[in-house]
Computed example of a mutant assay.
Amino acid sequence: MEGRNRRHEHEGQQELGSSTTVHTAFGFLILSLLTLLQVKYQNFGNPYQTHGATMLLFVIAVLVYTIALAGMSQFTSNTSYLPLLKCVCFIFGAFSCDLLLLILVPPFGWFILILCVCMSVRLICDSHGQILQCFQQIYQSINQSTSKIFNILCGWFQNSFRSLCQSASRALNSSSMPIANSIEKQVVNRPEINA
């Protein structure tokens, strides 16, 4: 079992290492395109004002790309999610570059967008089994966690109710509470004071 986990960890490290060149290229391309965007809009204003929706999509795409890349760089024994994260990285890395190209060179940007959509559809179709397996693992994990939490809460409520019942029972059986007959005896045997 331990050898199997080491093999999966080694495969995960190879998976990350093989795509490091692509991620370096995405980083360089994004920085280059942002520099060109800054040069283009040096005298014309702000691209966030003229192309607000595209820039918002760019920020979201870069965030998703970064989160997926960070998820890929986490070394765990469960490497079944790495192919899915690799696809997410490629799709959103290319999409973020394309969004900047749409602002800089719109006709070329639209051509690249069509290519990105086609490649994304192909990647999703090729890895649909892995995607379903990943979602199945997530569902099972959530189901197990929910079941554990439910059992813990049920046990806690049962213990609390049992403790409350025991406390009430002890209070009723306790001799510290006066009984009606003893109160009447105290009132009857009390001497009267004449004024």
Rank of each mutant, 00 (worst) to 15 (best):
R122I: 10
R122S: 10
R122Y: 13
L123P: 01
L123G: 03
I124Y: 03
I124R: 00
C125D: 03
C125G: 11
C125V: 15
C125P: 06
C125K: 03
D126K: 15
D126M: 07
D126L: 12
S127F: 10
S127G: 14
S127K: 13
H128R: 11
H128E: 04
H128F: 14
H128S: 03
Q130M: 03
Q130W: 09
Q130F: 08
L132H: 11
Q133A: 15
Q133R: 14
C134G: 07
F135T: 01
Q136W: 02
Q136T: 08
Q136R: 12
Q137H: 05
Q137M: 12
Q137R: 15
Q137C: 01
Y139A: 06
Y139L: 00
Y139T: 00
S141R: 00
I142K: 02
N143T: 00
Q144L: 05
S145V: 02
T146P: 00
T146S: 11
T146I: 03
T146W: 04
S147W: 13
K148G: 01
K148A: 08
K148F: 06
I149T: 07
I149W: 04
F150K: 09
N151A: 13
N151L: 13
N151G: 10
I152P: 00
I152C: 10
I152D: 04
I152Y: 09
L153S: 12
L153A: 08
L153T: 06
L153Y: 05
C154W: 09
C154K: 15
G155E: 00
W156Y: 07
W156A: 14
W156F: 15
F157N: 03
F157Y: 12
Q158V: 14
N159M: 07
N159K: 11
S160E: 12
F161V: 05
F161K: 11
R162D: 09
S163A: 02
L164R: 11
L164F: 15
C165H: 10
Q166R: 14
Q166K: 14
S167D: 06
S167E: 05
S167H: 07
S167F: 10
S167I: 04
A168Y: 08
A168M: 11
S169P: 01
S169C: 11
S169L: 11
R170I: 02
R170Q: 14
R170T: 04
R170L: 07
A171P: 04
A171L: 11
A171E: 06
A171H: 11
L172H: 02
L172A: 07
L172E: 14
N173E: 13
N173H: 15
S174P: 01
S174M: 04
